[in-house]
Design a protein around this nucleic acid. Structure first.
Lengths: 191, 191
DNA sequence: AGCCTTAACGCAAAGACCTTGCTTCTAGCG
DNA sequence: CGCTAGAAGCAAGGTCTTTGCGTTAAGGCT
């Protein structure tokens, strides 16, 4: 049984905090379970039992850091909202820490739950943007379409390509989506 | 200095072979450096010195397995070639072993070389398909455009989404590219 | 052909990490 | 207030990882 309010929660917070502190102090590559456990004031076996592995622990912490802290900015028009969001998203994810968190989140993730959460964060943000557009009466594409045309290409290039990416690329993708073919209509994409 | 033809090459082949054998015999999760080394007939320290890490070794082996073994099939038309290739690509990558190799390849890859190689494999295959189309006189999109519109969405969903993917999705992506906006014209995408 | 140079491997010891059985603690419940 | 069970502490044992040093062998040179 989960006991969210008790000792378990305190331990989890202490361990997550220890990871964040030590990442800043000694660097991500120098982290070890015994080190984190000592900083958090728990025994290593506690960490191993709860997370099973340093990578899974780092994955948990990384996902926390990838969670957006605020809803996307409202610029009064779909194109501006999407473009700004995509630029900020790309900027965050291409930065060295962003890449590191992304890798960690994907890496220590046997069942894909954390990866799914990352994807859901982006989808939620996009959903807000599209809902605003609909409220304004603007025609808006489907969330899945935005993911296919904007999020996926950025992620693919971040993960697989060494070359750097700039805001122009994000702009180009959004323009290709909105000015393009099925511009504002949903096209029934589904996974 | 690299000494490609000598002992180094034999050791590398023996170790790679040991990984493939043991993956089949005991499963990927049961692999350890000492185990692989013993099977390959080398000492663990050799593996640690050359690869540094079990993950980097697995990454190397995984990239080898992701290399396409033959040029894409020629069906006499761009749409058929791309659709067939995308379907086969998706099928390979969504299979449990495909996902595992993909994860391993991305995972133990500090400088992104292996990820870049994976991306280059796909780009090369697409390049062949597009060159054929051009030779036939068909209008063909840019490689980068195909990557943005077809490869990236598949990869994103494989890596970040738990839901299964079928051939219809690949078909849908190719159709969206060719029937869509810039259908056959290059649009100058670049990383 | 035979020596030289040097990268790469083998060996072995030391240290760090991971696992696991058992005990103790504490939050929630009757 | 006592009970129950999930979670943490403790400690020992085993496995993995690192590292220094000697040896081997591939490639170059005369």
């Amino acid at each position: 049984m989960a006991r969210p309010g008790g000792r378990s929660a305190r331990v989890q917070e202490a361990v997550h905090g220890a990871v964040r502190e030590l990442e800043a102090e000694v660097g991500r590559d120098a982290l070890t379970v015994p080190l984190v456990a000592a900083r958090a004031g728990v025994t290593p076996s506690t960490v191993y039992r709860r997370w099973g592995d340093l990578r899974e622990l780092l994955s948990d912490v990384a996902v926390e850091r990838l969670r957006p802290e605020a809803p996307p900015e409202d610029h009064g028009a779909l194109a501006a909202d999407l473009t700004t969001w995509a630029e900020q998203f790309l900027d965050e994810m291409t930065s060295p820490p962003g890449r590191a968190y992304l890798r960690d989140a994907l890496l220590g993730d046997p069942d894909g739950n954390n990866a799914g959460r990352c994807s859901a964060y982006a989808a939620d943000q996009i959903d807000v943007i599209l809902a605003r557009a609909t409220d304004r009466g603007e025609p808006a594409p489907d969330v899945e379409t935005v993911i296919d045309h904007v999020v996926s290409p950025m992620m693919y290039r971040i993960l697989f390509r060494p070359s750097p990416l700039d805001a122009d690329y994000a702009h180009h993708l959004v323009a290709g989506l909105l000015d393009g073919p099925a511009g504002a209509a949903s096209d029934g994409t589904d996974a």
